[in-house]
């Protein structure tokens, strides 16, 4: 009995100590990983879930939230102002993303081919990206002013051309703001595209030359297909950026935020106003949930479309 008794322990001990090592290592790893996870749970995931709950209440910050079912969503979808904002948000996306991507690609493509002044030009393109969005928005806001303060209209006026109401016209204000947003984000996209271009092995190009392909064919058959991962990343990244546009709009129309007549108001600005000037937190949460859903659907859709073709 005695030996039998004394035998099992070492047998048990070995796997136990092995497990212990692994558990200890896992614990060690997880204690590091847990920090960001905990942090994110507290400041991101929990508030996100809370927003879903709040969107079903009439919380006004002052009194306790009261459950009102889907009332906020009904009100939102029946509000013509929401549909205007919805349209605006998609206009930013539909104008902004393709224009900025094409511009960025063209610039990166040609910038990649020149040696002289390459670094300097690249820095110039990147500069707007590292400038504070609100500072830049204010500079552009002044550029766009009517004469005598606005540089552009001043110049047009000196040529005898009647002024262009960049920010004060219902039709032009949104494209004018989109333009500055495109300009602001261009540097980043150019850099990413150039990195993508550099990552394409030169052997492909050499082979293409030997086969006698011209520049256009090389671009279509080699560069663009091999650049797909970069393009997918940039499409998703810039779409999310345009759908969440706020700084530019808020700063360029701060006297009449999202104006004139709400023609430049994006969803995020509507959420901000509902929450922090009307204090309708429940209603603002419902708008946030809608924005979240839009972002999710668009991102998934884009990933799916791009993957399908690849």
């Amino acid at each position: 009995m005695q030996p039998a008794h004394s035998l099992p322990p070492p047998l048990k001990m070995r796997p136990a100590s092995g497990l212990k090592m692994r558990t200890r290592r896992l614990l060690w790893i997880w204690s590091f990983l847990a920090l960001p996870v905990l942090f994110y749970s507290a400041i991101r995931f929990y508030p996100t879930l809370e927003a879903f709950y709040l969107s079903l209440t009439n919380w006004d910050l002052l009194s306790d939230p009261e459950y009102i079912g889907l009332e906020n969503y009904k009100r939102l979808f029946a509000d013509p102002k929401f549909w205007q904002v919805f349209r605006n948000t998609f206009l930013y996306l539909i104008i902004g993303t393709p224009v900025s991507l094409i511009l960025a690609f063209v610039i990166a493509y040609f910038l990649d081919r020149i040696r002289f002044g390459h670094t300097f030009l690249r820095a110039l393109y990147f500069l707007p990206f590292i400038t504070t969005a609100s500072a830049m928005a204010w500079v552009w806001r002044w550029f766009y002013q009517p004469a005598p303060t606005g540089i552009i209209n001043n110049f047009l006026g000196s040529l005898g051309i009647s002024p262009i109401p960049f920010l004060s016209s219902v039709e032009l204000a949104l494209p004018s703001i989109t333009f500055t947003a495109i300009w602001a984000g261009l540097g980043f996209q150019v850099i990413i595209f150039m990195a993508g271009l550099r990552a394409i092995p030169s052997t492909y190009y050499e082979a293409a030359r030997i086969d006698g392909l011209n520049d256009w064919q090389v671009l279509r058959k080699i560069t663009l297909p091999l650049l797909k991962p970069t393009t997918v990343f940039l499409v998703v990244f810039s779409s999310i950026g345009f759908l969440r546009i706020f700084d530019q709009v808020y700063n360029m129309s701060s006297i009449d935020p999202g104006g004139p007549l709400g023609s430049t108001k994006p969803l995020v600005l509507m959420i901000y106003q509902t929450a922090f000037s009307s204090y309708e937190m429940g209603y603002a949460s419902a708008q946030t949930v809608v924005l979240f859903t839009i972002l999710l659907v668009i991102s998934l859709l884009q990933l799916w479309i791009m993957r399908e073709r690849g």
Binding site: P146, A147, P148, G157, S158, L159, S162, P163, I255, D256
Partner: peptide, 17 residues
């Protein structure tokens, strides 16, 4: 006004905001 018809000096400001 200037030659292009732009205001250079306003008679009175209009500023709803």
């Amino acid at each position: 006004f200037d030659a292009a018809g732009n205001f250079t000096t306003e008679g009175i400001t209009l500023d709803m905001a």
